[in-house]
Amino acid sequence: GIDPFTGEAIAKFNFNGDTQVEMSFRKGERITLLRQVDENWYEGRIPGTSRQGIFPITYVDVIKRPL
């Protein structure tokens, strides 16, 4: 089901994660935001896939912030 505490964002740019914990994505992908890790990073996942990880806040347009 849908978790009411998650947020939502759209990727503004392609992001290629450097490490296992970073999640790569392509511009235009819809991302579920799980939490804000710190002032620069979100943790999120791509709905319908097993992809999950952290990524820079500046790479996405936030539609709804996670609670």
Rank of each mutant, 00 (worst) to 15 (best):
residue 1 G to S: 12
residue 1 G to M: 11
residue 2 I to M: 13
residue 2 I to V: 13
residue 3 D to W: 12
residue 3 D to Y: 10
residue 3 D to E: 12
residue 3 D to M: 11
residue 4 P to H: 14
residue 4 P to G: 12
residue 4 P to K: 13
residue 5 F to M: 13
residue 8 E to R: 07
residue 8 E to D: 08
residue 8 E to I: 13
residue 8 E to W: 13
residue 9 A to I: 04
residue 10 I to H: 04
residue 10 I to T: 06
residue 10 I to P: 01
residue 10 I to D: 02
residue 10 I to N: 03
residue 10 I to Q: 05
residue 11 A to H: 00
residue 11 A to W: 01
residue 12 K to N: 08
residue 13 F to R: 10
residue 13 F to P: 00
residue 13 F to T: 10
residue 14 N to F: 05
residue 15 F to W: 08
residue 15 F to R: 03
residue 15 F to E: 00
residue 15 F to G: 00
residue 15 F to A: 00
residue 16 N to Y: 13
residue 16 N to Q: 12
residue 16 N to K: 11
residue 17 G to S: 10
residue 18 D to V: 14
residue 18 D to I: 15
residue 19 T to V: 08
residue 19 T to H: 12
residue 19 T to K: 11
residue 20 Q to H: 12
residue 21 V to G: 14
residue 21 V to S: 13
residue 22 E to V: 04
residue 22 E to H: 12
residue 22 E to K: 08
residue 22 E to S: 07
residue 22 E to C: 15
residue 23 M to W: 03
residue 25 F to H: 02
residue 28 G to A: 03
residue 28 G to V: 01
residue 28 G to K: 03
residue 29 E to F: 02
residue 30 R to H: 11
residue 30 R to I: 11
residue 31 I to Y: 00
residue 31 I to S: 00
residue 31 I to C: 01
residue 31 I to Q: 00
residue 33 L to D: 05
residue 34 L to A: 03
residue 34 L to Q: 06
residue 34 L to H: 04
residue 35 R to E: 05
residue 36 Q to G: 03
residue 37 V to Q: 04
residue 37 V to C: 11
residue 37 V to G: 02
residue 38 D to R: 07
residue 39 E to Q: 10
residue 39 E to K: 13
residue 39 E to L: 09
residue 39 E to P: 10
residue 39 E to T: 09
residue 40 N to R: 10
residue 40 N to S: 11
residue 40 N to Y: 15
residue 41 W to M: 08
residue 41 W to F: 08
residue 41 W to E: 02
residue 41 W to L: 07
residue 42 Y to I: 06
residue 42 Y to L: 10
residue 43 E to A: 07
residue 43 E to D: 06
residue 44 G to H: 00
residue 44 G to S: 00
residue 44 G to E: 00
residue 44 G to L: 01
residue 45 R to G: 05
residue 46 I to Q: 01
residue 46 I to C: 02
residue 46 I to G: 01
residue 46 I to F: 04
residue 46 I to L: 04
residue 47 P to H: 10
residue 47 P to K: 09
residue 48 G to V: 02
residue 48 G to A: 06
residue 48 G to R: 06
residue 48 G to Y: 07
residue 48 G to C: 10
residue 49 T to Q: 05
residue 49 T to M: 03
residue 49 T to N: 03
residue 50 S to D: 14
residue 50 S to N: 13
residue 51 R to Q: 05
residue 51 R to G: 02
residue 52 Q to A: 09
residue 52 Q to L: 07
residue 53 G to E: 00
residue 53 G to I: 02
residue 54 I to L: 11
residue 54 I to M: 09
residue 54 I to G: 01
residue 56 P to W: 02
residue 56 P to Y: 02
residue 56 P to M: 05
residue 57 I to E: 08
residue 58 T to V: 12
residue 58 T to Y: 12
residue 60 V to A: 04
residue 61 D to W: 15
residue 61 D to M: 12
residue 62 V to D: 02
residue 62 V to R: 04
residue 62 V to W: 06
residue 62 V to A: 04
residue 62 V to M: 06
residue 63 I to C: 08
residue 64 K to Q: 05
residue 65 R to G: 15
residue 66 P to C: 10
residue 67 L to I: 15
residue 67 L to E: 15
